[in-house]
Design a protein around this nucleic acid. Structure first.
Length: 220
DNA sequence: AATGGCTACAACCGCCGTAGA
DNA sequence: TTCTACGGCGGTTGTAGCCAT
């Protein structure tokens, strides 16, 4: 029940906001931990300014709190490290570097379609149907549609290709068009990718066209 | 002690989507 | 189908507190 004093210049909407952002008993107080910092940065790199979605992954933290924390702390922290907080890319990376055609190799990964139904008709997308293509290439290179061929899902990129500083390979991870970005994030985590994630501009859980994410190793 | 700059964060604003009349 | 009220969201602003001068 929201306390309300007659004559208070508050509408229901601002009372609700006050409750959600400040009065709720389950809110976590205190400073953000290093783990929370890292989680926010990684989620932001994947989701953009979707603060409410980011907040769902941080129990006890509100979207408003995370948004404020981002604007007052993390933004500055990333800038001091030479990282553009909007794109999560190095600030001084030249367009020539970014556009260089440096495709080295490609590892195509797909989940086994073991759950496809027997009559051959298409089923709704879930983990059993997701096809991923992982390639080492600049983010600006256009995305070619996944062939859909199946490969060993447990195969991970060679460790040495995830190391390095400026100009190191970027892992681009494509999903099939029907796969949401949320699903992509889960798969990236499950596949054990470490590092900073860069994303398509069209970040929306409901948006399922041209979903892809870029990964680079954290060098913080 | 006064003042100005800076920081942190609560609150506000405007827009959009949706439920229901 | 249209209208209205409301909730949810992201961007922005207001302001209290701190610190240096």
């Amino acid at each position: 029940m929201v306390p309300f004093t007659p004559g208070l210049l508050r509408c229901g909407k601002s009372c609700r906001l006050r409750w959600i952002n400040y009065l709720r008993p389950d809110l976590k107080r205190g400073n953000f931990t290093e783990e929370e910092d890292e989680l926010i940065i990684n989620l932001h790199s994947l989701l953009g300014n979707k603060w409410s979605l980011i907040a769902t992954r941080l129990p006890g933290r509100t979207d408003n709190e995370i948004k404020n924390y981002w604007n007052t702390h993390i933004k500055r922290k990333l800038l001091s490290l030479g990282i553009d907080p909007r794109t999560h890319r190095p600030l001084n990376s030249s367009p020539a570097t970014k556009n260089a055609a440096i495709a080295i190799t490609a590892i195509t990964i797909s989940m086994d379609n073991s759950n496809s139904n027997s009559n051959g008709s298409s089923v709704s997308p879930d983990e059993s149907q997701i096809n991923l293509e992982l390639s080492i290439s600049p983010p600006q290179q256009p995305h070619q549609a996944n062939s859909g061929a199946s490969f060993d899902v447990t195969k991970q990129p060679p460790h040495h290709q995830m190391e390095g500083g400026e100009g190191e390979p970027t892992y681009r991870l494509f999903t099939a068009p029907e796969v949401s970005i949320k699903k992509t994030l889960c798969l990236c985590n499950n596949l054990g990718f470490k590092g900073t994630c860069y994303c398509s501009n069209k970040m929306d859980f409901s948006h399922t066209q041209d979903m892809y994410a870029y990964y680079r190793p954290l060098s913080l």
